[in-house]
Every structure is written in C-alpha cells, then in structure tokens.
Amino acid sequence: MDFGSARRAVLQLLGTTAPADVPALLHWMRTTRDFDELTRDNRDAVLKNVADDLRCRLPPEAVLGSEQRALQKIRQQPEPTVHVDAFLYDEDVIDSLCEEGKMSRNFCTVCGSHRTAPLGFISHSFSLMELKFIYLHVLPDLSGKLLVDIGSRLGTVLYGVKSSFVLPVLHELILLQVLHADICTQGPLLQSADVIVMNNVFEYFLTEAEQARAWNYIIQNVRKQGSLLVTVPSLQDSLVGLEINVQLSSWVEEIPLDLDVYPERDIDREALEQIHLYKVL
C-alpha cells in the first residue's frame, strides 16, 4: 500500500470510529510507543550499537580509576549519587539492570527498612536524545566547519558526527582527530574552531584554580566572531565563584533554544534545558 492509499485508509478508519472515542484514539496515536519499530532512525541504531559495545569494555559506573577527582566530587554530593553514563545506559537498559538486581534507582534511608529514597544520577556524557537535539535542532549545517569537543571522555559527540547526524551522505569523509592534551596548550585549535562543545567539562575533574586557568585560556583564545559554544551547564553556572578575567556579555551572547521542536514524545525536558548555545561576539 502506497502513502496515498494508507492515508485514505487511516482517515476512513477515523471516520468509522465512534465520535466520543475519536479524542482517545488520536491521543493514543500521538503518545503510543507501538510505532517505535516503524519510526526508528538508522542513526539511532548505529549509536545504540556503539553504546552496547562500550558497555562491555567499561566498568558499570563508566568512571575509570584514574578519575579520582570525579569520584571524590560524586561522593561529596548532598544525597547518595552514582555516575550512570547517559550515553551507555538509556532508560530501557537501566530498567533491565534494575530488574536483574545489578542496579538500583533507590537507596535505603534506614538500613533494613522499607523507607527508601531516589538515588541521584549524574552523567558526564550526552544521551542519545541530547545528541540528536544538539545536531538536529541546535547547531547549523556543519559542512566545512571545525568542531572541537573539549573533555570528550567516551567520545559521544564524535560518535554523533559519525552516525550521520551532520552529513547524511558524506559522513565517511569527515576527519576525526583525538588529542590527549591540556586544553591550555591548544591555542591555535581553539582560535580556528567554528563550534566548541563542553559538557560538564571541568567541574568534576579540576580544582577551582585549575578550572579558572582553563576557562581564562579558552576565553582568551576563542575569539572567532560568530563561532558557537554548546555548553552544559550554562556558562554562568560553570564560571560562578571562579576568578575570570572577562565579562561574559562582552565575549558571547546566548541564543535561545526552542525545546518544542524536538520531534520525540518521550523527552527529558529538564536535561534539554541544561543545554545552552552561545555565539562569540
């Protein structure tokens, strides 16, 4: 059945539905997960396969032993908090692990009792939903552009590029380069960048003095007019309490994001609200 015939069949079905039941039927069509297999994007499948492979190679918390400062910061949270990498563990995977007893969403407030409270979850990676939002609804066409992901960790931003979110036809021609270096030694790279992505980039990995040093270096070198910064959280939240040598308003302007353009029904709006876009003045 071609599109035209299918459309007519659906309209005919709606026309034979009891008028009182039409609102409920339309609501079901808008919200059901029954159509997921029909609408699944191949790009989603590529990234899910990458996540499946990485989960087998990393410890469950996806934090390496060398990331001692991150582990310490997580333990200092006011409520019990665990690192659950949002790229590796989507809600379905977490549900499966909880059912198997390998993960929990709650902690016991009184040992041995039924009084429990939700665990705090923190991630240093973008989820698949967040990646799609950034590439499809936040950033412009990146053809011929230089994108720099600072503090890439598992490389989720790069996987998003290679999954065809950026260039659906020519993604095989995208050049990826991974640098293991102090960002404060990468002035020429920052000066050339058209887009810079920073996701919880320093707070959990550097002291406040080291954070201030890194941010001052970035601000000094990211001066290409019109270049874009994607940050989580906002620059204001990242820089609070740090010794920074510039007023944000003289360096960048924030570009409002429309969260309503995201096509998926099941979105974590709170997570998307943490994504901010800035343009260098």
Rank of each mutant, 00 (worst) to 15 (best):
E61T: 15
V252Y: 02
R33K: 08
S113C: 04
D266C: 12
A24G: 07
V280T: 00
V222I: 02
Q77A: 14
L14E: 05
E273R: 15
T39P: 09
D260M: 13
L189W: 08
L26R: 13
R105N: 08
R30Y: 09
Y262D: 07
W215H: 05
L54F: 00
L47I: 00
K132C: 11
S127I: 00
N221F: 01
L142D: 02
D237Q: 15
A70F: 13
P256T: 01
R213C: 08
V222C: 08
A271P: 03
V84K: 05
I122H: 12
M1C: 02
L139N: 00
Y217Q: 07
D194W: 01
F205S: 10
N42G: 10
H180P: 01
L175W: 02
Q247F: 15
P80A: 12
L206R: 02
T156F: 01
I244K: 05
K132W: 07
I267E: 11
Y135S: 06
G187E: 01
G226T: 14
A6R: 07
H27M: 12
L25P: 11
G241N: 13
Q76S: 13
L47S: 03
D266V: 13
F133Y: 04
P59Q: 03
S164W: 03
N49W: 08
L277T: 06
L88H: 03
N199Q: 07
L176V: 12
R105D: 06
L189F: 13
C184L: 04
G187T: 02
V169C: 02
E254H: 07
R7V: 09
Q77K: 12
S163A: 13
R33T: 12
L235V: 10
P60M: 02
K145H: 03
D260V: 10
D260H: 15
R40I: 10
S152F: 02
I174H: 14
V222G: 05
M1Q: 00
R153T: 07
S238T: 13
G144D: 00
L146H: 04
T109L: 12
F126Q: 01
L242E: 08
N221P: 02
Y262E: 07
L131H: 04
D194C: 06
L176G: 11
Q274H: 15
C111S: 09
Y262C: 08
E273H: 13
L131A: 07
E253Q: 06
V82A: 14
D258N: 13
G65C: 09
A62G: 14
M198T: 03
E91W: 09
T81D: 04
Y278D: 05
A45H: 14
T39N: 10
E264S: 15
D34R: 13
K162C: 00
D268T: 12
E37C: 14
T31R: 09
F87Q: 00
L248W: 10
R55Q: 03
D52Q: 12
Q191H: 03
A117L: 07
S127D: 04
E253H: 10
C108T: 10
I244E: 04
F121L: 05
E130Q: 14
V222Q: 03
S163E: 01
C56G: 11
V22D: 10
I275L: 10
F121V: 03
Q68V: 00
H27E: 09
A212R: 11
P19E: 09
I275W: 04
L176R: 00
T39K: 15
T32E: 11
W215N: 07
E99A: 06
V232I: 04
H171T: 02
V169I: 01
T17D: 09
G112W: 03
L248I: 14
E254F: 06
